[in-house]
């Protein structure tokens, strides 16, 4: 299968490991990702809260380019996924907005006619490729690895999409298919605080702490996430959390494609796991990274 691929800004820098592991996993499953020609930032929530029409217009520029490529558009970053899907839906539901946005796009020689399907890689793995094929392609069973599946807000909630909003199971099913154990994890769709980490740090630290605490209490070896911002908050601020709450957490926070890549036999450096700031994880008794 062929897909257009929208990496997004954070996958270009701080989370290149997510970018690398998505590409590795999809190639291993015989799917081709074609990077979107000259893509721009989706606008994220920061733009939407300043100037909405501008936010929609720059997001729609990506959709307009994807429309030319004719494949479904895969966006691994939760925020990009939501913003692109939201732009598509709003333009569909509000013809007036579509008209205005297209008037803006015309200035750049583009137009968008609602023909693109925005997909998350998790959705594609489960619904297009399928668990059977993933099982077939598994080289290293992840027996004994206890995973806390953390979905976060953006991929399940704002846009009613491929999974349940309160109790999503796609990631759980994915990892039990490759042999891992999913721990009881009621915090799976709770908010990590997002951008509040830069604006109201105390609030975000509390939210992130609760997410890590729950995984620790339920005996998880690692938290697996789909979102670069969640990964950043939970991992890079773990020291701050330990300082603020006198805890001693050292929980690895991995992208779901990194863990899946391990099951496909890729090494930790190929998947960027060695770029992690926290402790390593054990698979079949062997310590991966550090």
């Amino acid at each position: 299968m062929d897909y257009s691929y929208f990496p997004g800004c954070s996958l270009e820098s701080a989370h290149s490991s997510y970018n690398d592991s998505v590409k590795k996993v999809f190639k291993h499953l015989d799917s081709n990702l074609h990077e979107l020609e000259d893509w721009n930032c989706c606008g994220a929530t920061a733009y939407m809260s300043v100037k909405e029409i501008v936010g929609f217009a720059i997001s729609a520029r990506n959709l307009a380019i994807a429309e030319k490529q004719k494949w479904d558009l895969i966006a691994p970053c939760s925020s990009c996924y939501t913003i692109l899907a939201k732009t598509h839906r709003y333009m569909k539901e509000l013809p007036e907005l579509k008209e205005r946005v297209n008037e803006c796009l015309k200035e750049g020689g583009l137009s968008y006619n609602l023909k693109v399907k925005v997909r998350h890689p998790l959705d594609v793995l489960i619904n297009d490729i399928g668990l059977e094929k993933i099982k077939e392609k598994t080289k290293v069973r992840l027996d004994g690895l206890k995973i806390a599946n953390y979905y976060g807000c953006q991929i399940v909630r704002p846009e009613k999409g491929f999974d349940d909003r309160e109790e999503p199971m796609t990631m759980d099913n994915l990892f039990s298919a490759v042999g891992a154990t999913n721990v009881y994890y009621p915090m799976k769709v709770k908010c990590c605080g997002g951008m509040l980490m830069t604006t109201y740090e105390d609030v975000a630290l509390k939210l992130s702490k609760e997410i890590i605490e729950c995984a620790v209490n339920n005996g998880a070896n690692c938290i697996v996430t789909t979102c670069p911002l969640c990964q950043m908050n939970l991992e890079a601020y773990q020291d701050e959390i330990n300082k603020a709450y006198s805890t001693n957490y050292n929980m690895p926070i991995l992208f779901f494609t990194q863990v899946l890549g391990l099951a496909f036999g890729f090494s930790d450096s190929e998947l960027g796991i060695d770029k992690n700031l926290t402790a390593g994880i054990k698979i079949n008794g062997a310590l991966i990274h550090q």
Binding site: C9, E12, S13, A14, H15, S16, D38, W39, N40, K51, I53, V54, F56, A57, I58, R61, V101, E103, C104, L105, K106, E107, G108, G109, L110, D274, K275, N276, L277
Partner: peptide, 25 residues
């Protein structure tokens, strides 16, 4: 850990991109 990009990445068609923003504003 090589997780910081020192130089910004810039899109090629920045002129048309700015035109879109200007119109949207």
């Amino acid at each position: 850990k090589k997780r910081i990009a020192y130089m910004p990445s810039k899109i090629k068609d920045i002129k048309n991109f700015q035109k879109i923003i200007k119109k949207a504003e």
